[in-house]
Design a protein around this nucleic acid. Sequence first.
DNA 1: ATATACTCTTAACGAACGTTAGATATGGGG
DNA 2: CCCCATATCTAACGTTCGTTAAGAGTATAT
Lengths: 186, 186
Amino acid sequence: MAEKNIRERIKEVAVEHFNSNGYHGTTIRNIAKDVNCSLPMIYYYYNNKKELFDEIIKKEYFDLLKRQAALLRTNSIIDFYTKFVYDLNFLSNYEKKVYRLGIKVYLSFDGDEELMEIMDEWEKTILPRHYQILKPYLKNTDNDIGIVRTLVHLLETLIESIVVKNRFLPEEEIQEEISIVLRGCE
Amino acid sequence: MAEKNIRERIKEVAVEHFNSNGYHGTTIRNIAKDVNCSLPMIYYYYNNKKELFDEIIKKEYFDLLKRQAALLRTNSIIDFYTKFVYDLNFLSNYEKKVYRLGIKVYLSFDGDEELMEIMDEWEKTILPRHYQILKPYLKNTDNDIGIVRTLVHLLETLIESIVVKNRFLPEEEIQEEISIVLRGCE
DNA sequence: ATATACTCTTAACGAACGTTAGATATGGGG
DNA sequence: CCCCATATCTAACGTTCGTTAAGAGTATAT
């Protein structure tokens, strides 16, 4: 047993490498080098390269999404979404990279078809979920769904800015943009 | 000389492969196989793999962006942006793949640092350009820049939906979302 | 007809890859 | 003290990769 659980160390380093170089650009040798262990050590904990990648997406990424979705609601809907996005700024580097990797698979820039299908299933839940959250604040006009869709689209770009492009988004900017879309609500 | 300019055929097939498998997942051998030519043929027209990738991004992708930016303006600003996005639905498959590949590099999911820098330069021009376009329609309130930023963010997601996720976005949906952000303008 | 320039091929190079076989170290239970 | 399971290593396997050397086929110009 090394200083830290080696299995976890491997996963952490793997996230880094998959993130920077993609699935095919990442080599088991380089991961081993950064973990400071021998090459077959990785095969001791993971059956193969794909299994390592899969665990990151299926466990780490989706755990992160669920943790995020369980955020408590504040009394203002605009504040809620602002906080939702703003807090992403303060994810750990590891979490940000897992998130980034997930988005990469979500956009089918990496991973395989099996992972893509899992992502598609998740995507279908997004709109209804936010519709439920926003429902009490909507004014029952005929473009309610349009507002939800627009907000979700905006959120997607904001998340990408923070997580994928690694920018820091100030709270006021986030609030301003969300307010523009939700203008009239609440 | 083959049926078509072989150099162009190679580029077309390369776009396909880089798109599906990323830079590292793409092999010169597989490109050659799909082009129906021998492997060194590719080295006859391109010095190496990276040069082939670079030409696609530096020439094809940016040519596409410039062609797109040169769109004529209609009299309504909402119609202008709606058309801007809606027309993406009808890009050729080749153009869509080039676009997708460009976005992949833009999000630094592929490519190298040199290409990333070129992208960063381009990105800096985006906000000012749209501010110029929107200027006559803005009401000189203190969140003018916020509206421009929100619109650009929304456009980004819409473009991604069509080009990256390969969805078809109906004109009404696009118009609805843009209207929500530009609500009050014009 | 012969030389020259362009187009394209077969065959191979060395390097790097994912993966595995087999041995060694380590540490607790009988 | 020895046994056995777990943890880790060195060394190698076969495959595939990017790239190139060397030359064959073909058309044009002299």
